[in-house]
Amino acid sequence: MFSDYTMNELGAIFAMQGFAGLILFSVFVLMALGLAIIFGQMGVINMAHGEFMILGAYVTYLTSNLFADYLPSVFGLYFFVAMILAFIASGALGLFVEWVMIRHLYKRPLDTLLATWGLSLILQQVYRSVFGAREVGVSIPDWMMGSLPMTDMIEVPINGIFVMVLATGISLAVYFMMYRSSWGLQVRAISQNRMMADAVGINTAWTDRLTFGIGCGVAGVAGSAFTMIGSTGPTAGQLYIVDTFLVVVFGGAASLLGTIASAFSISQAQSIMEFFLSGSMAKVLTLLTVVGILMIRPQGLFTLKLRK
């Protein structure tokens, strides 16, 4: 299969596909980070995770329209405002959902799965009623258009680089929150031993709610970032959900580093195979490999050593 290409072209192909894989990697990381917090630390299956992302995307869309109408002079900067708003909107919805629904279901993970699936259906219908069934796209600021030529055969799109930078930034932020803040310490304490955490005076109920809210907020930011590379429709969230869960499970649920490593390997495998096979076969092979590895090693790539 390589004989049709010269060495030079082959190098360029791998570089380009590798870069496309890096963008996909950033997308996966953004999707999975919120879930890694919610599922990895709390063990809650949130099937509406995709819809929280889409909420962030719609908030970004609204913000871009507002800026275009009222503040056209600083339009180039709207995205940063939108990201903060997306975090607040998705996070607030997350807090609310935890309060109304999730907190009653902590002992029944399978039921959480069904209830949040119901939530995702409701949110989808709400989006469809409010924003219409058609996909919407935001107008990307000028500085994010175009691409950077690296060599004469390789060039990389700027919005792709931006998403990568964003993914790195958010990963670092989540890392500091989880491992350098007192909130993170409490979350990890609870995930290791809830009873003891309760006994030493951690307010577990409030920490749970905050954790769920922050996870959803991160999802919102991820959705906001996605508007830079694609359009947003009411059912777009559902497309991501299986990938996202597989990334988190494959990485080893409680490990942030594992999530990132698994996002990297899945995205690179998929984008390199995509060039030689059809897109759907690349996807099938990637998913099958992941599922196959999970069957042999159900605990995922990275595991936390815990005394149960």
Partner: peptide, 26 residues
């Protein structure tokens, strides 16, 4: 391997996704 509960649910869901993509692709 004593995999059950939510992990089993997610893996079976992945199979549903895989088979659909495969049928549509081929």
């Amino acid at each position: 391997r004593r995999v059950g509960g939510v992990y089993f649910a997610i893996i079976t869901q992945a199979f549903a996704a895989i088979l659909t993509i495969l049928i549509i692709g081929q």
